[in-house]
Structures are given as C-alpha cells and as structure tokens.
Amino acid sequence: MAPLDSPLRRVIEAVNRVLLGKDRQVRLALSCLLAGGHLLIEDIPGVGKTTLAQVLARTLGLEYRRIQFTSDLLPADVVGISVFDREAATFRFHPGPVFSQVLLADEINRGTPRTQGALLEAMEEGQVTVDGHSHPLPDPFLVIATQNPIHQIGTFPLPESQLDRFLIRLTLGYPDAAAERALLAGEDRRHLVAAIEPIASGKHLMGWRKAVRMVHAAPALIDYVQALAEESRRCGVFEAGLSPRGTLALLNAARSWAFLHGSHKVTPEHVQAVFAGVAGHRLRPRNTLADDPALLLARLVASVPLL
C-alpha cells in the first residue's frame, strides 16, 4: 500500500475536524468527487449536510456557490438568463449559480420538477443552453445536492431516472455521543468553516482524478462486480436490477475508494464498501413497506460468494 498523497490526506483530516465522527461518509463523499460524480446527501435537517458540502468545496480550493431550492425557484435562477443590453443592442447572457466548480443544491426536492430538471440536465451534459446558445460549464463541475427524506410535506421527490445522475447517495445519520459532545463543547461550526484554508486546488483534483482512473481492476474483480449486478437482477427483490451505468458507477466509485485508501488495485472489500452508496438509490425494493432497504442491500452482498 502506497502512502497517501499528503494534500489528499490533509483534506480528509481537515474535513474530519469540522464534521466529527463521520470519517466513512467523508471518504465516500470524496470518492464520489474524485470519480467525477455528483453527490446526493439525504438526511433530516441539522445533521451537517450543508457543512459537509461547504467544507469539501473549501478544502479542495474550488469555487463554490449555493442555491437554496424553494417551490418558487425558476430554472433561470439556476442556469442564468439572457438580458437585452441596450448599449450593445444585443442579448447578454448572465450566468446563473450553476456556473461554478462546486454547486451546493440545498434541499433539491423542495424545487419544482422544472427547476430540478434544468439542474439535472446541466449535470448530465456539462453545459447550459439558453436562447439557442450553449455555454460550457467549468471543469471540474460538481453538484452536491442535499435532500430531506421524501416523506416530508411540500416536496417533489426526484424521479428514479434523475436519481441515477448522482454517482453516490449517502446519509449522514446522527453523530455518536462522543462526537456530539465535542460538537457541543467546541467552537461554532460556522466559524470553523469560515476559517478553513484551501488545501488543494482544481489542478490537484484533476490530477487525482487521473490517478483514480489508473487504479487497477483485475479480471477477477470485474467478475465480482458483474456477479453483484447479476444477483441484483436475478434475486427478484428489487423492481429492476443494476443498469450497466450503475455497474460502471460501482466500479468507478470502488476505484476512488481504493485510491483514497492508498491502494493501486481495487479489491472486493472496496466494492463492498461503496456498494450501498452506489446502489442504494438505484435499486428500489419491490416490497417497499416490508423490508429495510439497507438490509436488503446487505443481504444481496452477502449472497454473492467470493471465490
């Protein structure tokens, strides 16, 4: 195992200093960004969704904007608008908040489907088209969306086809007792976030992404990923199995995870570690009420033997 690239280790440490006791989730979020995917954080308010997004953006030294989704937010508020410039006698495009390296889409399920659609289209295509003109989005362009659990009033849950655009979905959960005590006793989080100095930069991120793509996936490992996908399709517990895009996402996320752990190869343990994050929002249980989805995922992993 090679020692971890030190700026990356420092990023992890920095984020962990602000978000206490969530090392796993922090690493999952970072793996998502390193794999070039968008991240969906789903949890109840007040567990640190926004903080995680902010800290990640700041430590990575990326340009960062935030949109609070509400039911009266319009697509133009996200992507931008063409305004007539009287002096130049032309339309000039005023880019919206989407034109940033990291976009924090807070409470995305409070927005109307139209507004959600505009953002998700931008995520998918890497550019924005207004009045027939295409405006490319910066690179890297990462969306960190947060969402409250769907059974809250006045929300528009994301359809499955759009959930698929997020590489990883994670939940933060309550902090453990020790972490919560440290949180209560310690400094105000807002000050901490504001005080964070960028550790890395966009250039670093691009370099890491290249390295992630180099992480080796042996034929035996690809066999295992395929076996997992096959089992998700065959077992009959889910409405539909993992799509090829989902399988690819699983492999890429596992590569990132391996890279984050200083490994040059992906092992089944890496795949298992990211499986719930990658597959959780892509596999809908057939019998939604009877079973805990997390348990079903764990059962699926347990039912594929490692030879």
Partner: peptide
C-alpha cells in the same frame, strides 16, 4: 483500513 464489510447476519422475519 476502514473496510468493514456490509454483511449482517440478522434477517428480518
């Protein structure tokens, strides 16, 4: 290494 497997033994009835 933080790679605890996701396997759980308890099964819901």
């Amino acid at each position: 290494m933080n790679t605890a497997p996701l396997v759980q033994n308890g099964m819901a009835a």
